[in-house]
Write a protein that binds this DNA or RNA. Structure first.
Lengths: 264, 264
DNA sequence: ATCAGCTGTGCCGCTGAGTGGAACACGAAT
DNA sequence: ATTCGTGTTCCACTCAGCGGCACAGCTGAT
């Protein structure tokens, strides 16, 4: 029964907001529109309840409903989300510099922040021709394999680092083969002020990432370029990425709007 | 008492989701962080209730709490918001082309969709040096003065057009001086396939905007450049903007992900 | 030192908003 | 015809949410 009870059983009734969040969480990159039935199934909320809640979410603008009845994430959410200091706030000041970096290199340019035990991709610039990257804006990246991830992890609070290092399991995605090696890599990242990443999964790419700091010196974001392996030597990019990250850091001092360390 | 009752009186109790939305709506561009007291005041929700709700929103990731107690919009919202087809979905396919337009012109490039009786700015590219624009990503623009606004209005459902035209009052922001003239302008926009806008408010700028269409021909977005008045003749930009908008339109045919008319 | 006013927070009895099962109408596949 | 899935409305039960109140801490003015 404990099993049953947890899975939204009758009479129970659990925090409304939590359920609303579950409904929103039912949407993913490859499920951007959901029928009521899907919505109910994926969220584990009974049909009638799901309908009532979803409708309220529509009223509020968090969802929209298509003419065919399908539910879709609404624009209102975008409107509010852009007010997140660590999200669009940061992005707003970083964008022009990322743009420059992009113009010069014509490679993918990434901006990410840490959220819990993941990195969250805040912005990505890509040329059309460019080989596809695995990650989309708003998506999550592992802290242990990507360039931005390593930078963020290297400057994360001790507990996050320890936890991540302990739980680390080598994957095909990374060259790092053991927790010990990861620890060594992180130290190197801190010393050098930048990180290299490598990925073979969908396409073979290499990345260089550098930290963006708040006025008080805390690392609040990471910035990187992603280049196809086999192009010009990676070293070529280290300086550009670092100076760009520094430019953003400097700009953060003037526009105090976005500067804050993670609350966790 | 009706007055009193409406304003969050005792016992009343109104839909939880609506209140949550009110809490989120308390955040604006120049109020990106709020203390509990402010939050309570701006949303009209009693302190104790506001605290309880806000905490739940924090649990869910919609808000974050700073070490000093201030509330801030959370990253989780960004994560979900990026799944909005008419928001980031559209943006994702448009970006590379906007990027090109930006690279060539080095002027502000705007992408907006219509939401109700406003335009909502989905993306903006800006060079650092560029003179500031009034509008930020995620912000709302009037349909009657801006270039993108005119394009969106010109192709909006009849009822929206009529309502907007009737309620139109000439402002310093626009050259259009009467409802009749607005109506004529819109016809011109439809015929010509682009709109010009002018603005004198903070800085004197001119804009050229063109429609982006869904596979079924419906106009789903508008794309524009914003240039300082007095630069090269506006005519210079008409073709570039139009072809860029067409390129995005074409791309929408392949990635069906973002193509849909507004649900209203 | 004392006060007044502001905060954020915890407590707790009352009650109506939220709950989900049941029953419905519709369409499509069997 | 029958079965399945869908979106939808209805409604009686009840627990989650409500907000007034009290308390503690931190200002600054007296």
């Amino acid at each position: 029964m404990t099993e049953q009870a947890r899975a939204g059983r009758t009479g129970a009734g659990e925090a409304v907001i939590e359920r609303a969040a579950r409904l929103l969480a039912a949407f993913t990159a490859d499920h951007r529109q959901l029928s009521l039935a899907e919505l109910s199934r994926r969220s584990g909320i009974p049909r009638s309840s799901a309908l009532r809640l979803a409708r309220k979410l529509v009223d509020v603008g968090a969802l929209e409903r298509r003419s065919d009845g399908a539910f879709v994430v609404g624009l209102r959410l975008l409107e509010v989300a852009t007010l997140a200091p660590r999200g669009h706030g940061l992005r707003a000041v970083a964008m022009p510099y990322m743009e420059d970096l992009f113009a010069v290199t014509r490679q993918h340019v990434l901006l990410a922040v840490r959220d819990g035990d993941d990195a969250l991709l805040v912005e990505r610039l890509s040329a059309h021709g460019a080989m596809p990257v695995q990650y989309r804006v708003g998506g999550r990246l592992p802290l242990t394999s990507t360039g931005v991830g390593l930078v963020l992890l290297a400057h994360a609070p001790a507990d996050v680092q320890e936890r991540t290092i302990e739980e680390f399991v080598p994957s095909a995605d990374t060259e790092i083969r053991s927790p010990a090696e990861l620890r060594r890599t992180l130290a190197e990242v801190r010393r050098g002020g930048f990180a290299r990443g490598r990925q073979s999964e969908p396409w073979s790419v290499s990345t260089v990432a550098a930290p963006v700091r708040a006025p008080d010196g805390a690392v609040v974001a990471a910035l990187s370029v992603v280049v196809p392996t086999g192009g010009p030597d990676l070293g070529t990019y280290v300086h550009v990425v670092q100076t760009t990250a520094l430019a953003v850091t400097r700009e953060l001092n003037y526009s105090s709007v976005a500067a804050d360390r993670t609350p966790t």
